[in-house]
Amino acid sequence: MNSNYTRIFSGNFILAQTIFNQLKAIGIIPVIKDESESGRLAGFGSSIQGNQEIFVHADELEKAQSIVQEIIGA
């Protein structure tokens, strides 16, 4: 992943989609990385099913982190 992007979340599909939708609603376009889906499409398995990572551009990091904290309650 480009060094201009930072991972702000790693977890289950449902939380990832909620965060993704909230970020889009405020104008942030996040990138979702799903290793298990990538592996499945390539014909390999994954030990962590449904785990997704969300990345945002460094310029949007602070705003995005506040959204993640609101959603996961951290």
Rank of each mutant, 00 (worst) to 15 (best):
Q65W: 04
Q49T: 03
Q52S: 03
I29K: 14
S66C: 07
F13D: 12
E60P: 00
E53Q: 12
E37D: 09
F9T: 11
I28S: 13
A64Y: 01
E62M: 09
S66W: 05
I29W: 05
I8G: 02
A42S: 15
V56P: 02
I14V: 15
F55I: 04
Q65L: 12
V31R: 07
D59S: 13
N51W: 03
M1D: 04
K63D: 10
G11A: 03
I67Y: 02
Q69S: 09
G43F: 00
L61D: 01
N12G: 14
S38H: 05
F9P: 06
K33F: 02
Q49C: 03
Q22Y: 14
I29F: 06
S46L: 10
E70P: 00
L23I: 14
E60R: 10
H57A: 07
G39R: 11
N4I: 07
T18D: 13
A25F: 00
M1K: 06
S3R: 12
I71E: 06
A16V: 02
E37W: 01
G50M: 10
F20L: 12
D59I: 09
R7V: 08
I28N: 13
F55M: 02
R40Q: 09
G73V: 10
G73K: 15
S46R: 11
I71H: 08
G73W: 03
S46P: 05
A25S: 15
A64S: 14
I29G: 04
N2T: 13
E35V: 04
I67E: 09
G11P: 02
V56E: 05
I29H: 10
I28P: 11
G43A: 02
K33C: 01
N2P: 12
F55G: 01
Q65E: 11
I67H: 06
K63R: 13
Q52V: 00
G39W: 00
F44N: 03
A58F: 10
G27E: 07
F44G: 00
N2H: 07
A16E: 05
G43T: 01
S47F: 03
I8P: 03
E53H: 10
S38M: 10
A64T: 08
N21Y: 14
E37S: 05
V68E: 06
S47C: 02
F13K: 10
Q65D: 05
S47I: 08
E62Q: 12
E37H: 04
Q22N: 15
L15P: 11
N21P: 08
R7T: 11
Q22D: 14
V56R: 04
G11V: 00
F44K: 03
A74L: 12
L61E: 06
S66I: 12
